[in-house]
Amino acid sequence: MAETHLAKAIDIIKKATEEDTAKNYVEALRLYEHGCQYFLHAIKWMRFADETQGERQRDSIRERVRGYLDRAEKIKAYLDEQQTNARKPVKASGNGNSKDSDSDGEDAQTKKLQESVSKAIVVEKPNVSWNDIAGLEGAKTALKEAVIMPIRFPHLFTGLR
């Protein structure tokens, strides 16, 4: 699963850079955000025999995602500036009010997506173990069964359950 997400993320980012180079910034922004989501899914599902090597690779991917998100932020700022400059004459004439409200809705959704992706990136690995959590044995067991076991043993959680 991680390999497919990683391959899909790479393809999407390639398309994003092509659109970016072609100055099709709206499409590039969408593709950068979409590609970063796939990279984060790939990180989540990666498995390694050597955990040290795995952490290095995950950190490398996180760095690339930060770079892509930085570029997406620059594109977003540029597009916002272009929209602001384009809106000034439109507001003076009173035309295009529905267009302005649609783009504001898209801006809010894009900003919300960027914030959620930024929050999903874990910069450092927390040093917390199950023993650090006092009590709540039932909750810890439920979390292990619902989250950790499917990640560690995906072959046991295939098909209809």
Rank of each mutant, 00 (worst) to 15 (best):
N131M: 03
Y32N: 01
P89E: 08
L69H: 04
Y68W: 03
R62D: 02
D59F: 04
I75S: 02
F153C: 06
M46R: 07
D80M: 13
Q109P: 05
V128H: 01
R66Y: 06
N97F: 14
R30S: 12
N97M: 13
G105H: 03
S98I: 11
A86P: 11
A139P: 03
H34M: 07
R87M: 10
V122E: 08
G35H: 00
Q57F: 11
A16I: 09
V123P: 06
R64H: 12
I151Y: 12
V123L: 13
A22Q: 09
M149Y: 12
I10Y: 04
A7E: 13
K74M: 07
S103L: 13
K144Q: 07
E27K: 08
A72N: 04
L113S: 10
R58D: 10
I121R: 03
D11S: 11
K119L: 05
Q83E: 14
R66P: 07
E145Y: 02
E63C: 04
I61Q: 06
R87W: 15
A42M: 00
A108H: 04
W130E: 15
G67T: 02
L113P: 00
R56W: 14
K111G: 02
Y38C: 13
K112Q: 08
A7T: 14
T4K: 14
G138P: 10
A16N: 01
I10G: 02
T110H: 10
T17H: 08
H5F: 15
G54S: 10
V123G: 14
R161Y: 06
A134N: 05
M149D: 13
M46G: 03
L40H: 08
P154K: 11
L29H: 07
K14R: 10
I43E: 06
